[in-house]
Design a protein around this nucleic acid. Structure first.
Lengths: 167, 167
DNA sequence: ACGAAATCACTAACATGTTAGCAGTATCGG
DNA sequence: CCGATACTGCTAACATGTTAGTGATTTCGT
């Protein structure tokens, strides 16, 4: 469905040109955010069930993964690394704490901050889940092709770098 | 922040190797879904305020745009075009109806279906909003470079096509 | 030292995303 | 004709995303 091969082309014409101005210049660009959303969705559809089977959400896994790679972190840092807003993070960390997935503590030098660390429970989970995710990833790589996947990494990395330069 | 130029590399090592197995193979791939999310976020940060200033959400605008380009549509079709789940759509369309942005009707041949059309109110909105969005888009294009942007379209399109082939 | 400004985590209010499941309707097989 | 099946839009329960704003701190300028 849809013509997925052209870029920067006018997508279609306004069929209901009876009432309004219906300027043809409107929306004459392809929707890159939407394209990124769709691609992401197509991948997550395969990963989400794996996480769900272990009682984790997508965001919780992102946090666990960040903590596993970098060690204990502060809330603000987690928000940046995992692309989560601090209001969302408050709720997520609260639920993860209840579930015994993380521990909270506050550094003495700054009582505003909050230090988050993994528990043994979540460290145990990582081993089980990561192999399943890895297998799914390999299968995706085989489906879409290694070159296509590597090219997507490269192109989106470049886009992201350009967007970061001045935000 | 972060090394944004390498792909398919092990990201980091587990510093808390005291308690668990800490297999080095865990998560030895870069997180493409996360990358797509970040890139999308960086773009939406600029578009969202424009929509919000006109009382629209991101998703509502996606629906309006689809209806403007294709004419009246049924719910299921909108869900596919806009990457929205039908449960989400129920609420969104309800609120849009209340706000006078869309009209609902049902075809006689199949009383299960629901036909959605734009109202004059939303058709009027399109003209005002689209020019502002277009200007922002052009500015993004200038910031990240035309080539980078075109390359992102191409690469993500290819990825999406590969993921669509068998889902 | 001391008051203004910046930070951090959080709450509130609302819109959306996910999963599971449901009632009404259409379609198909026999 | 009629029951099994599939489809459509929907609700329910819960987790998350957004924006605005707050209380508790720290930091900075003077």
């Amino acid at each position: 469905m849809q013509t997925a091969s052209r870029a920067h082309q006018p997508a279609a014409r306004n069929r209901t040109a009876s009432t309004a101005s219906a300027d043809p210049s409107a929306l004459s660009y392809r929707n890159l955010p939407m394209l990124l959303l769709q691609a992401r969705e197509r991948m997550m559809v395969r990963f989400r069930p794996i996480l769900g089977a272990h009682g984790l959400t997508e965001q919780q896994w992102r946090i666990i993964r960040a903590l596993n790679e970098r060690g204990p972190l502060e809330s603000r840092h987690i928000a940046d690394l995992c692309s989560l807003s601090t209001p969302s993070l408050a709720g997520i960390l609260g639920r993860m704490h209840e579930a015994g997935l993380i521990s909270k503590s506050q550094p003495r030098h700054d009582r505003r901050r909050l230090r988050i660390a993994l528990t043994a429970r979540s460290t145990r989970l990582i081993g089980k889940i990561s192999s399943e995710l890895q297998a799914t990833y390999v299968e995706i790589e085989r489906t879409v092709g290694t070159a296509t996947l590597a090219d997507a990494y490269r192109a989106v990395d470049a886009l992201l770098a350009g967007l970061k330069s001045r935000g």
